[in-house]
Design a protein around this nucleic acid. Structure first.
Length: 654
DNA sequence: AGTCCACTACTGATCACTCC
DNA sequence: GGAGTGATCAGTAGTGGACT
């Protein structure tokens, strides 16, 4: 229809998708044509490319609803963060989808569900009520686009939030309380939707005569409420329809409630099934934090001074806070707390944070990152990696850092010297002085050893099973046994520390999975160090003890008799959810990176592009859409482009 | 990057004209 | 005279320049 063919639009989207600025796509196409000896007779403008991307977004929304309408079960996951003072929330859903490439559009019930990106959204605040509303709204909006499309027409399908709730079996995310609140909110919505379904069913199931009588009774009530026949007729027609509609809703609700109460408890449970699962990465992170807490307290229990104090004058307030053991250890780890966690003023974690700040600072101008890599590469005779990044919430990085420091302890002591003498005025900054002091402190080294042991024995094997390569199809709901095994294993180590510290300690009995140490040289370094560390056993055991407490708390959803434990195999299949919340963390990160590069990028442009890319929308378009759908998409995109969406959104937030 | 708006290609309707 | 063809025109959709 248009001047540019579907092919051209597709090409434009693909090129823009790789990161090419909209305005450069046209010239780029011309040059590519040039090289291949094709004369491209016109150059696509920036606006047109932008619209092509917008079309990708519209198609992605249609795809999301199309897939939902074909699917029997879906779970959603979300995460939020703030970017420049504005809350943003990313949303994904996991469901089984057709394999578009094969050309067969039916869904294989045994296939691994795909995680689909539903975009990032600015939210006014992150209360759970707001989240629930936002999620409904997003489904509603996409449904509208879908319902108006020729595709929906062909499929004779009209999608609604109600239908979405019907197949929504669960939610997963980090362990923040708002997330859990949101889950409860959605569960309630789902319950209400089921009641409505049942009510409508009951209404439709009544025989004609019953129906007439039944409605007549209600009708009488309606008229009575209005104040009698005369009063009713006196109402305006609009008011009458309004009341009729309300009455209808009430009837359905009552019938639904009746039908629901008549169901067997098992049926009720199936109907209301809504499973919440926590992100395994967060479980692990929390366990690490719990271990660290317990470890820090243990010095006092032993009547010892503990690791050398690494004073930071700027942090007096946080310092006070952290030395106070009454700070709740069991609270889920928020970003603020994570910062506080890193701001511990002594011990292994602090040493790792300092080393991270020196050797891998995010700010290129600060720190000694390049010197570090060069030095280590030279010393060890092979390319060395950067120091583990302890400056963000990437998980496990503290364990990595501890292992790294112990493995190359001598080299790290050396490098501090080099740093000192490489300056015009040979001296160490406060932070460098602190790290050096920490590395010479036996108590700090003891903590580093405990962290390394925990990492190699527990964290690494655990993470391999929940998010390593080959676990893409892992269903979080099937991980109950793993967590049980993990707790049992830690308990057995606590019962018998000889498994780690005994002369015949071996990975076969020490690690969670009984496999070779994931980092043999780190363990070698630890074992070499152990004889010189008098309290290493107590401290390590304290770490494991603290971690166990956290594991118990943070794997509560798997408890015997709980929803996950009780769910049937089919239900678990339906409520499939990924074992970690990485996709959301990643989506938020990707968004922050994108806006850093293009500050004026708007959300819906970003979403259009990101959804299109992540959900393989092009495959969907190729497989399912017809020319009339494409025309529809162009029109819709056109409307969005011209509607001033962004302006409205900004106004709403202000 | 978004918004507005002018320009232009396309579409469908209508009607005149031509040919069988 | 009716079917087919071409011209014309209005309305719509697509495009991109100018401005913010």
């Amino acid at each position: 229809k248009g001047i540019y063919t579907m092919q051209a639009r597709k090409l434009a989207r693909i090129i823009a998708d790789t990161g090419c600025a909209c305005g450069k796509v046209g010239p780029l196409l011309e040059r590519i044509g040039d090289i291949f000896g094709i004369r491209v007779n016109r150059s696509m403008s920036r606006r047109t490319v932008g619209r092509a991307i917008e079309e990708g977004g519209v198609a992605a929304k249609m795809q999301a609803i199309y897939e939902l309408s074909q699917s029997k079960g879906v779970t959603i996951s979300a995460n939020s963060t703030s970017n420049r003072g504005i809350n943003i929330e990313s949303l994904h859903m996991a469901l089984r989808v057709p394999d578009y490439a094969s050309g067969n559009l039916s869904i294989d019930p045994n296939s691994t569900p795909k995680v689909r990106f539903l975009g990032v959204e600015k939210t006014i605040d992150h209360t759970s009520a707001e989240s629930v509303r936002g999620r409904e709204e997003r489904v509603q909006e996409s449904s509208d686009i879908f319902n108006r499309s020729p595709l929906a027409n062909r499929l004779k399908c009209h999608y609604s939030v109600q239908e979405f709730l019907r197949i929504l079996w669960g939610m997963n995310g980090d362990h923040a309380s708002t997330e859990k609140g949101t889950a409860r909110g959605l569960q309630e919505k789902k319950h209400n939707a089921s009641i409505q379904d049942l009510g409508e069913e009951a209404l439709a199931g009544k025989s004609y005569m019953d129906l007439v009588l039944y409605l007549a009774a209600w009708n009488a009530k309606k008229v009575a409420e209005a104040g009698g026949e005369a009063a009713w007729s006196a109402l305006s027609p609009a008011e009458q329809t309004d009341r009729d509609a309300k009455l209808m809703k009430e009837i359905v609700a009552v019938l639904g409630k009746e039908a629901y109460d008549a169901l067997s408890p098992e049926d009720c449970q199936t109907l209301d099934l809504f499973i919440w699962g926590g992100c395994c990465m967060h479980k692990d992170l929390n366990s690490f934090k719990g271990g660290n807490n317990e470890m820090m307290l243990e010095w006092k229990n032993l009547g010892l001074a503990g690791p050398v104090l690494l004073a930071n004058k700027a942090n007096a307030a946080i310092l006070r806070n952290l030395l106070d053991p009454s700070v709740p250890v069991d609270a889920p780890l928020t970003e603020d707390q994570f910062r506080a966690f890193k701001a511990s003023t002594r011990g292994g974690v602090k040493a790792c944070a300092l080393a991270g700040a020196i050797f891998n600072n995010k700010d290129d101008k600060k720190g000694q990152a390049n010197k570090h890599v060069d030095f280590m590469t030279g010393k060890l005779g092979q390319q060395h990696h950067r120091f583990p990044d302890t400056s963000n919430t990437r998980f496990g990085s503290f364990g990595d850092a501890a292992a790294e420091l112990l493995k190359y302890l001598l080299q790290y002591l050396d490098i501090m010297d080099i740093i000192k003498w490489s300056k015009n005025n040979p001296s160490l900054t406060n932070i460098e002085k602190n790290l050096l002091a920490a590395l010479r402190d036996l108590a700090t080294l003891t903590e580093l050893a405990a962290m390394t042991i925990y990492r190699v024995l527990i964290t690494h094997p655990y993470l391999c099973q929940v998010c390593g390569p080959g676990t893409e199809s892992t269903n979080l709901l099937d991980l109950g046994p793993l967590h049980q095994e993990l707790r049992d294993h830690i308990q057995s180590l606590l019962d018998d520390p000889e498994l780690i510290f005994g002369l015949d300690a071996s990975y076969e009995t020490a690690t969670l999975d009984g496999r070779e140490w994931s980092d043999p040289s780190a363990m070698e370094a630890v074992f070499k160090l152990i004889p010189s560390l008098p309290h290493v056993q107590e401290i390590t055991m304290a770490f494991f003890r603290g971690a166990l407490t956290m594991w118990t708390r943070f794997s509560a959803e798997f408890a015997p008799g709980g929803l996950i434990d009780q769910a049937s195999a089919t239900e678990r299949q339906l409520a499939w959810m990924p074992s970690t919340n990485d996709t959301n963390e990643g989506a938020l990160g990707a968004y922050c990176v994108a806006v850093r590069g293009k500050p004026s990028l708007t959300l819906h442009q970003y979403n259009a592009q990101a959804m299109f890319r992540r959900n393989s929308t092009q495959d969907f378009m190729d497989a399912v859409l017809t020319p009339e759908d494409h025309a529809y998409i162009m029109r819709e995109a056109r409307c969005i482009d011209e509607s001033g969406e962004e302006r409205k959104r900004q106004q709403k937030i202000v």
